[in-house]
C-alpha cells in the first residue's frame, strides 16, 4: 500500500456561497450536489480487503443508511469519513464541517452535560444558552447541569446527538447509535433523528444492522457486500415510515436477501 496513491481530501462548503450553519429547509440546492464522494476506494486490514474499488456518493441533505453483515466494513467506512481511519487507495471527499455519533455516547465524564454539548464550539460561542438550545432539541433542556454518569443510556445518546448537531454539520455520521438501546427505547430517538435531520438537513450516513430502522429513516439504503455496494435501494415510502405495508415488506425482503438472510425458513 503505497502512500502515493492515497488521497484524502476535505472540501469546505461545496456550494461556496452558503454560509456554514444556515441551510434552511426548502431552499435546498440542487439535490445532485454531493456532500460525500468516494471513488475507487480500497482499504485492507492485514490480508483482509474491507473495501475494494468502492464508490459511494451522498447528495447534500440526503439520508443514507448503510447496511452490511457484521465485519463487512460498515464501521470502517464511517471511520474513514470521520478521518479516524485512512484509505489505502482512492479518493474521498467529505465536508470539513461534520459530526459523529458513536455506538456509545462517549460523553466526557468530567464535564457537565452542557459543557459536553459545547465541546465542538470555539470558546467565544460556548454559552449555556447555546447548549440549552441544542439540548432542548433533544428534549433534555433540564439536564444541562447533570453529570454524564447520572444519565440513562438513551439520554446520554441524545446528549451525544445534541453535541453532534450543535455546530450544524453538513455531514452527520451515525455509527449504530441506537444499537445499545432496547427495541422499545430505540423508537423515540429514531423519530428524533428523523425530525432533526428534517430540520437541519445535514447529509446523513447511518450505519446500522437493523433493516427496519434503515427503511424507516433513510432516503436510500446501501448494502455493503464484499467491499462493494451490493445493493443501492431508493426508499420510496412516506416518512417517517410506519414500518408496515406491502412496499415496505418488499424492500425489506430485497435487503434481507442481499444480506444473506433468507425470508422463508431455512432448510434444516
Amino acid at each position: 500500500m503505497a502512500a502515493d496513491d492515497r488521497e484524502v481530501l476535505t472540501m469546505t462548503n461545496p456550494v461556496g456561497t452558503n454560509p456554514v450553519g444556515t441551510n434552511p429547509v426548502g431552499t435546498n440546492p440542487a439535490p445532485a450536489q454531493p456532500a460525500v464522494v468516494m471513488r475507487d476506494v480500497g482499504k485492507a486490514f492485514a490480508a483482509r480487503r474491507i473495501l475494494d474499488d468502492f464508490a459511494l456518493t451522498i447528495a447534500r441533505g440526503e439520508f443514507v443508511a448503510l447496511l452490511g453483515r457484521s465485519g463487512s466494513g460498515k464501521t470502517t467506512l464511517l471511520r474513514i469519513l470521520a478521518e479516524l481511519d485512512t484509505v489505502d487507495e482512492g479518493t474521498v471527499l467529505a465536508p470539513r464541517n461534520r459530526s459523529v455519533v458513536f455506538q456509545e455516547p462517549r460523553l466526557v465524564p468530567s464535564e457537565r452535560v452542557w459543557r459536553n454539548v459545547l465541546l465542538v464550539l470555539p470558546r467565544r460561542e460556548s454559552t449555556l444558552a447555546r447548549a440549552q438550545e441544542a439540548l432542548a432539541e433533544v428534549n433534555l433542556a433540564d439536564h444541562a447541569r447533570a453529570w454524564p454518569h447520572t444519565l440513562s443510556g438513551g439520554e446520554a445518546q441524545r446528549v451525544a446527538l445534541a453535541r453532534a448537531l450543535v455546530h450544524r454539520p453538513d455531514l452527520l455520521l451515525l455509527d449504530e447509535p441506537f444499537a445499545a438501546l432496547d427495541a422499545l427505547t430505540r423508537l423515540r430517538p429514531q423519530a428524533l433523528v428523523h425530525e432533526l435531520w428534517h430540520r437541519h438537513r445535514p447529509a446523513v450516513l447511518l450505519v446500522t444492522h437493523d433493516v427496519d430502522e434503515a427503511l424507516r429513516l433513510a432516503d436510500r439504503v446501501v448494502v455493503l457486500t464484499d467491499g462493494k455496494v451490493g445493493l443501492d435501494l431508493r426508499v420510496d415510502l412516506p416518512r417517517p415510515s410506519e414500518g408496515t405495508g406491502s412496499r415496505f415488506d418488499d424492500l425489506r425482503s430485497q435487503l434481507l436477501a442481499e444480506l444473506g438472510v433468507a425470508r422463508p425458513a431455512s432448510p434444516a
Binding site: 470521520a82 478521518e83 458513536f102 456509545e104
Partner: peptide, 23 residues
C-alpha cells in the same frame, strides 16, 4: 474513544489536553 471524539470534532491539541486528557 474520548480522544477519538476530540479528533472528530477537530479539537486543538491544547484543548484536547486541558478538556479531555488532564481531567
Amino acid at each position: 474513544r474520548l480522544i477519538e471524539v476530540g479528533r472528530v470534532f477537530g479539537l486543538s491539541r491544547t484543548r484536547m489536553i486541558t478538556r479531555l486528557v488532564l481531567p
